[in-house]
C-alpha cells in the first residue's frame, strides 16, 4: 500500500516504478490497484490511457495487471463527483469483482488524506493481511505535517509502516552537473539546489522522532516526469543499463518469504536501485 497525507508528492510515480520493478521477475504476478477515484493517474503513467475494462484487469506486461477508475470513464474530462459511500462501493467491487488471478504482489495506490478510501481499503483487505504501507513525502514541513498524520492513521488502523520515502529531495541542474553526479545524489552538495527546503530536518528527522525507517531520498529529475507523462517504464527505456540488471538481481535474490521484514528489505533495496537507475539516466542524457 502506498500512502501519503499530502497530494502530489509522488505516490503514483513510486507505485508505477515499484510495479515495473517487481514485474521484472517473470515468475511473479504483480497487480497495481489505483483507488484514487477522483484523480486516477495510474492509467496515464502505465501508458494505458483510453483502455476500457472487461471483467479482467488491464495488462501492461504479461505479469503486471492494472485496475483503476480511469478505465471506467468514457472521456478524460469525465469527473467522478461522488461522496464516500459510492467510492467505498467501487473499491469493494475492485477487490471482489476484478479477476486478478493468482498474484504475488498487490500494490495499492491511494489518494491523499485519511478518509473514506483509506478506511475502506484497510477494512476490506484486513482479512487478506496487508504487508504494510510505504509512505511518501517531500522535504517541506508543510508536507511532513500531513505525513505525520498519515503515520498516526496507520497506527490507529494497525497498518504496519514499512518506511518513508523522501521524494523531490533536491534538484541537480542538468547544465552544470558534472561527473560527480553519483555522489551528488547521495550527498547533498553545493550544486544541488533545495527547491523544497527541509526547514525542520526533512523526512530523516521525522523518521527518527516517530521511529520509522527512511527508505531513501530521491532527487527531482525532469526525466521521471516525462516518462510518467508518456507512460513508459524507466527500465525498458534503458534496457542495457546496469540498473535494469540490478533490479533483476535484487528481485531474484529476494527470498520468497512474504513477511513484513522481507518486504521492507525489498523496498529498501528497490529504492536504492531506483535512485541508481535515475542517476544512470542522467549520465545517458
Amino acid at each position: 500500500m502506498v500512502l501519503s497525507g499530502k497530494g502530489g508528492v509522488g505516490k503514483s510515480t513510486f507505485s508505477a516504478i515499484l510495479a515495473h520493478g517487481l514485474a521484472a521477475d517473470e515468475a511473479k504476478q504483480v497487480a497495481l490497484l489505483d483507488i484514487d477515484i477522483c484523480g486516477p493517474s495510474i492509467p496515464k503513467m502505465m501508458g494505458l490511457e483510453g483502455e476500457q475494462v472487461s471483467e479482467y484487469s488491464n495488462y501492461v506486461e504479461e505479469n503486471l495487471g492494472v485496475m483503476s477508475v480511469g478505465f471506467l470513464l468514457s472521456s478524460p474530462d469525465d469527473a467522478v463527483i461522488w461522496r464516500g459511500p459510492k467510492k467505498n462501493g467501487l473499491i469493494k467491487q475492485f477487490l471482489r469483482d476484478v479477476d486478478w488471478g493468482e498474484i504475488d504482489y498487490l500494490i495499492v495506490d491511494t489518494p491523499p488524506g485519511t478518509s473514506d478510501e483509506h478506511l475502506s481499503i484497510v477494512q476490506y483487505l484486513s482479512a487478506a493481511h496487508i504487508d504494510g504501507a510505504v509512505i511518501i513525502t517531500t522535504p517541506q514541513e508543510v508536507s511532513l505535517q500531513d505525513v505525520r498524520k498519515e503515520i498516526n492513521f496507520c497506527h490507529k488502523v494497525k497498518l504496519p509502516v514499512i518506511g518513508v520515502v523522501e521524494n523531490m529531495s533536491g534538484f541537480i541542474c542538468p547544465k552544470c552537473k558534472n561527473c560527480r553526479i553519483l555522489t551528488l545524489i547521495f550527498l547533498l552538495s553545493q550544486n544541488e539546489s533545495q527547491i523544497f527546503p527541509p526547514t525542520t530536518g526533512g523526512a530523516e528527522k521525522m523518521c527518527q522522532n516517530l521511529n520509522v525507517s527512511l527508505l531513501g531520498k530521491v532527487p527531482l529529475d525532469p526525466q521521471i516526469g516525462k516518462s510518467c507523462d508518456k507512460g513508459q517504464s524507466f527500465l525498458s527505456e534503458a534496457p542495457e543499463s546496469p540498473a535494469t540488471l540490478s533490479y533483476r538481481n535484487i528481485i531474484q535474490s529476494k527470498s520468497d518469504n512474504h513477511s513484513a521484514k522481507a518486504s521492507s528489505q525489498l523496498a529498501a533495496l528497490l529504492f536504492r536501485t531506483f535512485i541508481y537507475c535515475r542517476s544512470m539516466l542522467f549520465c545517458h542524457k
Partner: peptide
C-alpha cells in the same frame, strides 16, 4: 502543474465546475 498527469486531473475539475 505543467505535467500531463496533473493537467488530466484538472480537466476533471473543470467538468466538476461545469456540473455544479
Amino acid at each position: 502543474t505543467p505535467q500531463a498527469v496533473s493537467v488530466g486531473d484538472v480537466r476533471r475539475e473543470l467538468t466538476f465546475c461545469k456540473k455544479t
